[in-house]
Simulated scan of single mutants.
Amino acid sequence: MKSSIQQAARSAILVCAITFVFAAVGCTTTTRQVTDTRPVLRNSAPSTMSELRIADTALESGNFDLATSLYEKALQADPKSVPGLTGLGNTLYGVGDYTRAGVYYQRASQIEPKATPPLIGIARVAIHQRRFDDAIATYRRVLTLAPNDPLACAGLGAALDLSGDHAHAQALLREALIANPGDPMLSVNLGLSLTLGGDPRQGANVLLDVTRFPAAPPQARQNLALAYGLLGNDDAAAAILSRDLPKASVQDNLRFYELQRGRDAQTGQPPKSVAVSMVATPKVQTASVK
């Protein structure tokens, strides 16, 4: 039977946008994921480049209305602009319109089949639609085009975890960290995967390496608090959660940790769950990146 953590994680990844630093990461997309345009092979018409640059900046700052307007203007001038189509897809993804986002990602991918940003968008949409096998296949296609791409590795790891293949997810993330040493996105996902996969002590060790930096994302701290909570160290968990969450949310998390520890003690089994990319659940704040 799936644990409550697994159910929460599955719900979270389908409700929140997967990510890292875009707006308030719990339920939003990462700037890195949203605006990355490598390697888009087809250049846009010169007349659209200014709109695209401003649109990218608007998207990074969370101004979805302005970003949408500018991407649409760029596409009026050049309907086959892969950066424009991908950017509009990212904007729709950022506001939770995954179906329409997928349409624009598909159009961009049809124009430039070897462009990785539209493919990453397609994979993220597949995850939100619970099509984990499709997401895995698409991320693997990206990695054939861009080996060790951290976005694709993080996304593939999350998709593997969601499909229940935790061992392969963790092996993939460890290998990706060798190729991308110190990448916080990959480290956060690995730490969360270990924590939810039944090894919160090892997960905490990984997450401590990320949270020791002042600029560490909130998700890293929230995931570390989850690890401490599952280990029974509520004082440490509360101190960490208090940096980013209101008192009521901190108490909700602590009660959840206590409930889960009790269930695990009764069953004698470690918590089984999935790592999700920079995602936060309503009660257990967790995060990973895809």
Score class of each variant (00 low, 15 high):
residue 91 T to C: 10
residue 7 Q to K: 09
residue 260 Q to V: 15
residue 21 V to T: 13
residue 127 I to F: 07
residue 42 R to P: 05
residue 140 R to P: 10
residue 82 V to F: 03
residue 116 T to P: 07
residue 241 L to V: 01
residue 250 V to K: 01
residue 163 S to V: 00
residue 36 D to K: 09
residue 17 A to W: 06
residue 190 L to N: 11
residue 233 N to S: 10
residue 36 D to W: 14
residue 129 Q to M: 11
residue 159 A to Y: 13
residue 23 A to T: 15
residue 263 R to P: 01
residue 260 Q to N: 07
residue 103 V to Y: 11
residue 247 K to N: 01
residue 196 L to N: 08
residue 60 E to P: 00
residue 250 V to R: 02
residue 57 T to W: 13
residue 174 R to P: 10
residue 43 N to C: 03
residue 157 G to V: 15
residue 14 L to D: 11
residue 60 E to I: 11
residue 201 R to K: 04
residue 244 D to P: 01
residue 146 A to R: 08
residue 127 I to T: 15
residue 8 A to S: 12
residue 200 P to L: 06
residue 187 S to H: 07
residue 226 L to H: 06
residue 274 V to H: 03
residue 61 S to P: 00
residue 239 A to R: 05
residue 93 Y to K: 00
residue 97 D to T: 11
residue 249 S to A: 01
residue 205 N to M: 07
residue 234 D to T: 13
residue 2 K to A: 11
residue 221 R to Q: 14
residue 267 T to F: 02
residue 263 R to A: 14
residue 268 G to N: 03
residue 42 R to A: 05
residue 88 L to N: 04
residue 247 K to E: 01
residue 231 L to Y: 05
residue 263 R to D: 12
residue 28 T to C: 05
residue 35 T to E: 12
residue 139 Y to S: 01
residue 29 T to S: 15
residue 106 Q to V: 03
residue 118 P to G: 08
residue 79 P to M: 06
residue 85 L to Q: 09
residue 220 A to R: 11
residue 240 I to K: 01
residue 182 G to C: 03
residue 8 A to G: 08
residue 290 K to H: 14
residue 226 L to N: 02
residue 180 N to C: 06
residue 180 N to S: 13
residue 286 T to I: 06
residue 43 N to L: 03
residue 148 N to F: 13
residue 198 G to C: 00
residue 74 A to W: 05
residue 43 N to R: 04
residue 254 L to F: 02
residue 222 Q to P: 01
residue 282 P to Q: 07
residue 203 G to E: 11
residue 247 K to R: 12
residue 132 F to N: 08
residue 127 I to D: 13
residue 93 Y to T: 04
residue 66 L to N: 05
residue 187 S to Y: 07
residue 254 L to R: 02
residue 102 G to S: 06
residue 216 A to M: 08
residue 22 F to W: 02
residue 174 R to H: 15
residue 124 R to W: 15
residue 35 T to R: 13
residue 84 G to P: 10
residue 173 L to Y: 14
residue 220 A to C: 14
residue 33 Q to E: 14
residue 144 T to I: 10
residue 80 K to I: 13
residue 37 T to P: 00
residue 18 I to G: 09
residue 132 F to Y: 09
residue 267 T to G: 02
residue 131 R to V: 02
residue 150 P to V: 14
